[in-house]
Every structure is written in C-alpha cells, then in structure tokens.
Amino acid sequence: MSTKNSSVNSFGARDTLEVGDHSYEIYRLDAVPGTEKLPYSLKVLAENLLRTEDGANVTKDHIDAIANWDASADPSIEIQFTPARVVMQDFTGVPCIVDLATMREAVGDLGGDIDKVNPLAPAELVIDHSVIVDVFGSADAFERNVEIEYERNGERYQFLRWGQGAFDDFKVVPPGTGIVHQVNIEYLARTVMVREGDGTKVA
C-alpha cells in the first residue's frame, strides 16, 4: 500500500514534528475544537479520523461528531476506524493469508500486477495455538513438541514463509515463541506507528 497522504485536512490539523534529525507528519488534535475534553480513547480515535480523512469514508462530519461527543446521548453516527496495524493468531491469520494469495493469483490470471495485492496495514501473524503436547515429563519436551509441530504442518509453514516474503508489511512469528497477547506486548506493539511513503514519515 502506498502511504501517499490521503487526508483532506479540513481542520488544518496536519503539522510537522521534528525529533532529532527526523521529521514526522502528525495530525494535531488542538486544531479541532472540543477534542480537549475527550477521554483518551476517543482522542486516539479523533487522531485516526484526522489522519485518514478522505471526504468519503471519513468526513469532516465524522470528526465533528467525535469532537462533540456526548456521553449521555445515544449513538447517532457510525464512525470509520482504520487500524494502524493488525495482529493475528494462526487460526484467523492463516485463512487471511490464503485469501490474499488467492486474490493475488486471480489478479495475475486477469493480467494485473500481483505486487499490488498486499495488506493495507502492517500485519503480524503469531502462531500460538498449533503446538500440541505430544511429549511431556522430560527436559526437552518443549523443543520436541515444537519439532513435531514443524514436521506435522510443514506445508503450512512453507506457505507462511512464502507469504512473509511475497507480501509487503506481513511478518510471521513462529510457533514456540509465546501466546499472541504476550508476544504482542513484549515484541510487536509500538506506541507510535510510523509509515513511510512519498518522502514523508507519517506518525
């Protein structure tokens, strides 16, 4: 996916943040009246809407709706949210990569550019449900169970290795590393996401 700036920037919120030798494009909440009173979770959503405002899926009205949020009112408008990244575990992630591979094949069959078929956001797949306890009660039980898993599902791991190389912004965490939530918190999660494209870094 190109990270070309698609924000309509109705509120003039786009700004530049200089950090050391690096320059980042950011979207300032203080450009939108009312956001200062929002709870933190809705400030995160407001920044997301400012950054992804395109005039169609995300409009000025959506941003105004968040800025004027009333905790006591019934919800009256649906808000578009665009995740900055996606983390998956194997039971949901493997079918997703199969779908992307199938789409890529169909695009190729129709004469299109298969390299354009990629996740729209960085995607990380943590394989955490597959390892079965076949061996137990010995010092090498963990290592042996992981080995058996690779033997049992070798084709799946060859496919995922292909996917990691074929798709942009797709990474696989192998079995035996830990459960998805632990791996996410300890290794994958980022406080600020930075996407590069068209000569700019968008934070």
Rank of each mutant, 00 (worst) to 15 (best):
S6F: 00
S7P: 02
V8A: 05
A13T: 04
R14E: 15
D15L: 06
T16I: 08
T16D: 01
L17W: 00
E18S: 04
V19D: 09
S23H: 04
S23M: 04
E25L: 00
I26H: 00
I26E: 01
A31H: 00
K37Y: 03
L38C: 06
Y40M: 10
L42A: 02
L45F: 07
E47L: 11
N48W: 08
L49K: 09
T52Q: 08
E53R: 06
G55N: 12
V58W: 09
K60S: 15
H62R: 07
W69Y: 15
D70K: 10
A71R: 06
S72H: 11
D74P: 05
P75D: 03
I77S: 04
I77R: 07
T82F: 13
P83A: 04
A84P: 00
M88P: 00
M88S: 07
M88N: 05
C96S: 14
C96W: 12
I97H: 05
I97C: 14
I97N: 08
V98K: 05
D99F: 09
L100T: 02
L100K: 01
T102I: 12
M103N: 08
R104P: 09
V107N: 12
V107W: 10
G108L: 14
G108D: 14
D109C: 03
L110D: 15
L110N: 15
G111I: 13
G111K: 12
G111E: 13
D113A: 15
I114A: 15
D115V: 04
D115P: 02
K116I: 11
K116H: 09
N118F: 06
P119S: 04
L120P: 10
A121V: 14
A121F: 07
A121T: 07
I127Y: 06
D128T: 08
D128C: 11
V131A: 12
V133S: 07
V135S: 02
S138E: 11
S138R: 13
S138C: 10
A139G: 09
A141N: 02
F142C: 01
F142M: 02
E143C: 07
E143V: 08
R144Y: 06
I148T: 11
E149P: 03
E151M: 09
R152S: 10
N153V: 14
G154I: 03
G154T: 05
Y157P: 13
Q158I: 02
L160F: 04
L160S: 07
R161G: 11
R161M: 03
Q164Y: 01
Q164C: 03
G165C: 01
A166P: 01
A166G: 00
F167A: 03
D168L: 12
D168Q: 14
D169C: 01
V172C: 10
V172F: 07
V173W: 12
T177D: 04
T177N: 03
H181Y: 11
E186I: 06
R190V: 10
V192K: 11
R195C: 00
R195L: 03
G197Y: 02
K201H: 13
